[in-house]
Simulated assay, not measured.
Amino acid sequence: MTYTLEPEVIATDVEDGVVLLDQRTGRYFQLNRSGATTLRLLLDGNSPDRAAETLAAGRPEAAGRARTDVRALLESLLKAKLVVCS
């Protein structure tokens, strides 16, 4: 399964993360640095579990929380129709 931005969504890097503009609705969404990193990992072809492993690398105690956070962000992005799965 791969994830891509919806064709009408523009991502712009900012100092503390990334801003997504949904051109269909004119709505902006801002992701902090962790959210931006997660989004990039997913868009680069990583599964949610692999993205969580990368985020928690070197901190095994954070693995469970990372999985939960990655899945929650992905669910939000899919629900807002900013990201599609193919």
Score class of each variant (00 low, 15 high):
T2K: 13
Y3C: 10
T4K: 12
E6T: 08
P7N: 09
P7A: 11
E8C: 02
V9S: 02
A11L: 08
T12N: 10
T12D: 10
D13R: 13
E15K: 12
G17P: 03
G17Q: 02
G17R: 00
G17S: 04
V19Q: 07
Q23T: 15
T25Q: 09
G26N: 10
R27C: 10
F29A: 10
F29N: 06
L31T: 01
L31K: 01
L31M: 04
N32W: 01
N32H: 04
R33A: 15
S34G: 14
S34W: 09
S34D: 14
S34I: 14
G35W: 02
G35V: 03
A36H: 02
A36Q: 01
T37Y: 04
T38W: 01
L39R: 01
L39P: 01
L41F: 08
L43A: 12
L43K: 11
D44T: 09
G45L: 13
G45S: 14
G45E: 14
N46I: 05
S47G: 15
S47F: 14
S47A: 12
P48A: 09
P48L: 05
D49K: 12
E53R: 15
E53Y: 14
T54C: 05
A56Y: 02
A57L: 10
A57H: 11
P60Q: 10
P60N: 09
P60C: 08
E61W: 10
E61Q: 12
G64W: 02
A66S: 08
A66R: 00
R67F: 03
T68P: 00
V70H: 04
A72V: 07
A72T: 09
L73Y: 00
L73S: 00
L74C: 03
L74W: 01
L74Q: 01
L74T: 00
E75D: 15
S76P: 02
L78M: 12
K79S: 15
K79G: 14
A80V: 02
A80E: 06
L82R: 06
L82Y: 05
V83N: 05
V84F: 13
C85I: 13
S86W: 05
